[in-house]
Design a protein around this nucleic acid. Structure first.
Lengths: 231, 231
DNA sequence: ACCTGAACACCGTTCAAGT
DNA sequence: ACCTGAACACCGTTCAAGT
């Protein structure tokens, strides 16, 4: 009894499994994930998953691709064409960061699977279009897009991991960053003079500022490559 | 019988456990890791690990910190002081990438744990020293170091994951990147014109070129912030 | 202080069997 | 074509007990 028909959908999709995995990850955190629980989440026995998916590995790959779902394109009207490629790229980067951060628990688990899946294609295409429209050559646009997206993802991993870890321990991000600051400040000043001096700057949590800093440097570097630098 | 004394070392260190975990990860790949196997690797029963470590989570954190071991400082004499901060930072970045890539299997598993542990302190201190020596303010140096290291780590994750995944399937990196290229080239050209056009550039495997591209952009952006742009 | 043996609840995966 | 039940080998973790 209690077969799947009650959901109304004819059969289980691989997408359904990916979504269920992501949902479970957000709800129970890392470690709360198992084939049996994913199966339960979609109303089926664990063994049934192996009809749709080869193994857990493949399920996690599907989930990591599903992470791109819901990343909205920046509104095209909000930004002028031509020379304002900087604003467009900046906005896309900020949206990507915010989107991934909204799934920080999943990011922590899926970080080791960041590889471009089918759902990452559309955002990548948009970024390439912006860059080519700004006058970058094909290879430069490809390299620039790669640099930007690896940076944003690396940034978010570093942001999401302590966030998710602190959450598990029941601490706020502020508490966690204050602890980090104290650890740095307590270091031997003769061996680590700069870490001690800059403990406050290093341990955040001015993450927005830090993101904008990196973004601005990257865009400046790209602008210089592009040849002209004025507005 | 067969107690630990035969190794000569008095007792098991947390460092020993971290090293054993890393060794196991490299040797058996992701999925070949278990408390029982780590215990066997150090010649002990699984239950004994819980004397040294709270749980598997903590063991993996130790291992992710051990990943920084063996990262050699760039030779100070190889690079002139003062204005050649670019060369020093570039060399440090290349060394970090090479070092992490030499542990790509571990990187794939530990990617979701990239947070600064005790062994990451020395490299970070060196980077900060270089940047401050180049004239960056404290906050700028802290932000620049953060940007650089998140980027390198994000880059390496994207490089290591397909590498390690291909290895598991018994394919070479070249085969894997050729497959990726074909998948991109086969996309509908009306929806993804740029991805199709740039399939070759995007799927690599010109990873060295791509790394140098990102590094150059980042350094250019930092140089501009620093104020002057000559040599 | 450090390690073992045995146990518990749970896990990923397979496979013959059902519809 | 899709799902189940039962089974297998293995897992993380606890805990009383040993030395």
């Amino acid at each position: 009894m209690a077969t799947r028909q009650k959901t109304g959908r004819p059969t289980l999709t691989r997408e359904d499994l990916a979504d269920a995995t992501l949902r479970l990850l957000e709800r129970e955190g890392p470690g709360g994930l198992s084939m049996r629980k994913v199966a339960a989440e979609v109303g089926v026995q664990a063994a049934s998953l192996y009809w749709h998916v080869q193994n857990k590995e493949e399920l996690l790959d599907l989930a990591s691709d599903a992470l791109w779902e819901g990343l909205e394109p920046e509104p095209p009207g909000a930004v002028a064409a031509g020379d304002d490629w900087r604003a467009t790229v900046a906005e896309a980067s900020r949206r990507l960061r915010a989107h991934l951060l909204a799934h920080h628990s999943a990011v922590r688990v899926l970080a080791g699977r960041f590889a471009p899946g089918p759902r990452a294609l559309a955002p990548m295409e948009r970024l390439l279009a912006t860059l080519r429209g700004a006058g970058f050559s094909g290879p430069d646009a490809a390299n620039a897009a790669y640099t930007l997206s690896t940076w944003v993802q690396g940034f978010v991993i570093h942001e999401a991991v302590p966030m998710s870890a602190a959450e598990e321990r029941g601490a706020t991000p502020e508490q966690a960053s204050e602890e980090a600051r104290q650890r740095l400040a307590a270091l031997p000043a003769d061996r680590y003079p700069h870490l001690v001096e800059l403990a406050g700057e290093i341990s955040g949590p001015g993450m927005d500022t830090r993101f904008e800093f990196g973004l601005a440097r990257l865009l400046d570097g790209l602008e210089r490559l592009r040849g002209t630098g004025g507005d």
